[in-house]
């Protein structure tokens, strides 16, 4: 799949932002006044900035309100609802903390649940795709959720929780990568089943329909992005999980925490690049590629 920068930035940043909103909603921490303002500003910049980035890949963003209509069947529509309601509830909750020094606990808990729900619905957009066997697995939502919770804890200054959650996320990451490598073959898709001609003999793509490229190849058969997959996996794993975990073992100051956050974010961006670049869509079979 095409690793579109707007989608990589959206899912990484908003995952972190909604993770921070989750911890703020729980009251961990529960700052008031200017400190609360700082926390909520960071959370909203990440979450809303990510959402705005995601509209860059729409053909007609001016019709985005229609995306609220099909929540019965569409995970993308559900994501629209959870993200907007989470942002509205957490804004009210944050206003209570910033301007009135009041923590409205039930509002925070509801906002926390919806923030987590947003990350879940984002993950399910990918995990529902039967056409991309690498994504269609429980480890996809598990990875997205644990990354959001771990990164959010890092931003919220919850050192102990961040350490545990990052280690859990690292485990899900390994499952997602290593099991994912075999999942396309396990799903049983091949050019033989794609064309239905396997009964006659070995099938090979002889000539593509066009000499040039097309939307399908650009969007779903993005082979070039996998070139440095092995090196990127090592970089992503070291930056997103190992380095922040080691830093969390040190006495936690602002400088150490900032370093851990930056390292984690860089690692998540690399991991998210691979999430798309390594994902093979079954339509590639028709073009003799994967």
């Amino acid at each position: 799949m095409h690793p579109a920068p707007s989608v990589i930035v959206f899912s990484s940043f908003s995952g972190l932002g909604f993770g921070l909103l989750f911890w703020l909603g729980l009251g961990l921490p529960a700052p008031t006044g200017w400190i609360a303002f700082g926390f909520f500003t960071i959370a909203y910049l990440l979450a809303v900035g990510g959402l705005i980035a995601s509209t860059f890949h729409l053909g007609h963003p001016e019709r985005a309100l229609l995306a609220f209509t099909q929540w019965r069947t569409s995970w993308l529509s559900r994501e629209a609802w959870t993200s907007v309601t989470a942002l509205v509830l957490m804004a009210l909750y944050g206003a209570g903390l910033v301007f009135f020094g009041q923590r409205i606990a039930w509002l925070g808990l509801a906002g926390a649940a919806l923030s987590l729900g947003t990350v879940l619905t984002t993950a399910m957009i990918y995990a529902q795709m039967k056409t991309v066997p690498r994504w269609r697995h429980w480890s996809t939502p598990a990875l997205f959720l644990s990354l959001s919770l771990g990164g959010g804890a890092l931003l919220a200054g919850q050192g102990r929780a961040a350490l545990v959650l990052l280690l859990i996320a690292a485990a899900f990451q390994l499952v997602n990568w290593l099991d994912g490598d075999a999942r396309f073959a396990r799903a049983g898709h091949s050019l033989a089943t794609a064309t239905g001609l396997g009964g006659i003999g070995a099938v090979r793509s002889f000539a593509p329909p066009h000499t040039g490229t097309n939307y399908l190849l650009r969007e779903m058969v993005h082979v070039i992005g996998r070139k440095h997959a092995r090196q990127l996996r090592v970089i992503a794993f070291a930056l997103a999980y190992v380095l922040p975990a080691l830093l969390l073992l040190l006495p936690l100051g602002h400088a150490v925490a900032a370093l851990a956050v930056l390292s984690h974010l860089a690692g998540v961006l690399a991991s998210r690049w691979l999430f798309f670049a390594e994902a093979e869509h079954v339509v590639g079979l028709y073009y003799g590629q994967r």
Binding site: L58, A64, M220
Partner: peptide
């Protein structure tokens, strides 16, 4: 259609 491309993925 908002041109999100999700149907083409599916």
């Amino acid at each position: 259609c908002i041109g999100c491309g999700l149907c083409a993925w599916a």
